[in-house]
Design a protein around this nucleic acid. Sequence first.
DNA 1: CGTATAATTAGACACTTGACTAATTATCTA
DNA 2: TAGATAATTAGTCAAGTGTCTAATTATACG
Lengths: 90, 90
Amino acid sequence: MDGVFKALADPTRRSILRLLNGGEMTAGQLSERFQISAPSMSHHFNVLKQADLVVARRDGQQIYYSLNTTVFQEMVTVILDLLKAEGNNE
Amino acid sequence: MDGVFKALADPTRRSILRLLNGGEMTAGQLSERFQISAPSMSHHFNVLKQADLVVARRDGQQIYYSLNTTVFQEMVTVILDLLKAEGNNE
DNA sequence: CGTATAATTAGACACTTGACTAATTATCTA
DNA sequence: TAGATAATTAGTCAAGTGTCTAATTATACG
């Protein structure tokens, strides 16, 4: 459970989660949105996977990431949105 | 806002918040509950204060800590309880 | 005032984290 | 099979985190 909070402690990862809240995206599409190298992004994906916050599926050359939408994960999204609304996020 | 998640990323600090959920406690009372030196505990108190998750007041020699009970903070407590219920916490 | 108690601040140190470049794996297509 | 593309793994490094002991600050009380 510690992993979930560790995962959420990084602003880049919270941004990734917010992006995924709009639907699944490939690793490449996500990487485009950040000024961070692909390997570094991959590292963040891994942290999110370990925390069970996202799931990955391969389709051809792409890996699609999406939110792991259990009740708890939805709650996390709500929290992220609230925080976003409350002020400056990230 | 980053501070809130950073604060929640440490299991000791989450435990402190759960203890404070039962009412205010002094730094000493809190320290007794952990196998951690007083200075280290003080460091954790400071992180929680910075994140605005707790408030401190002095009464004589003691410093009393309590949850900062805004709507958001209450929500955090709910999350912590949920996580606690869901499985192994800390 | 002098000593004891509660808590914090200062400084050091090991471990973790997030970033990078280089190399590797997996898949597609000509 | 060879070459191109998507993504990850490996290895490195600076910065951050959590811990400790020692020293300091603040309050209480005899």
